[in-house]
């Protein structure tokens, strides 16, 4: 029971962090090309995928979509849900089986999949003209993947140091 509460608290924190980062990245979205986002909240999805497993990761994605629904409407929520789900499933698979890939490669593929899924949804909704946006979105997945990977690495290093300090105190 104690473990469950700990996991639930951790998941709640991750969901809150994902929503806070989604709101924060909205501040400088106007500086980016139309339709593009920095993808900072994907750091949380990657953290969940690399340390917590399937259910918590998909829960974070769902919370992000609900936040998009409440803040930007149904269309944004559909884009967030589809991009997030495709990206999260790939991340979970690669963290488990992609032994030859580094953190950067997994992060880049996650960002790429997120953009590709959203482009396909745009194609379904608005037709082939939407592919004019594809090169920009694909290019932006490189810095987005880099930032996400760096943030994940820093977070895991910090988390590991804190756990180590906690164990030392108990001894």
């Amino acid at each position: 029971m104690k473990t469950n509460v700990k996991k639930l608290t951790r998941l709640a924190l991750l969901c809150a962090a994902a929503i806070a980062l989604s709101a924060f990245e909205g501040l400088f979205t106007p500086l980016l090309p139309p339709g593009a986002k920095a993808g900072l909240s994907n750091v949380v999805v990657m953290l969940a995928a690399s340390t917590m497993g399937w259910l918590p990761t998909l829960t974070v994605v769902l919370f992000k979509a609900v936040f998009a629904l409440l803040s930007r409407g149904a269309v944004s929520a559909a884009f967030s849900a589809l991009g997030g789900l495709c990206s999260a499933i790939l991340l979970l698979f690669l963290f488990r089986y992609g032994k030859l890939l580094g953190v950067f490669g997994i992060s880049l593929l996650g960002a790429f999949t997120h953009s590709a899924a959203q482009l396909l949804l745009s194609y379904a909704l608005y037709g082939a003209a939407i592919f004019a946006y594809a090169p920009v979105f694909l290019l932006l997945s490189v810095p987005s993947g880099l930032i996400t990977a760096a943030a994940l690495r820093a977070t895991l290093a910090l988390s590991s140091r804190r756990q180590h300090q906690g164990k030392e105190r108990k001894i």
């Binding site: 030859l100 580094g102 953190v103 490669g105 790429f112 090169p135």
Partner: peptide
Amino acid sequence: MKRKWFSVLDLAVLLTVLALSLGGF
């Protein structure tokens, strides 16, 4: 986490994404 920060396969992924993007432009 024992995973590397950057591997050779990552470089291949990076170059593929850059090539696709450049081709699109």
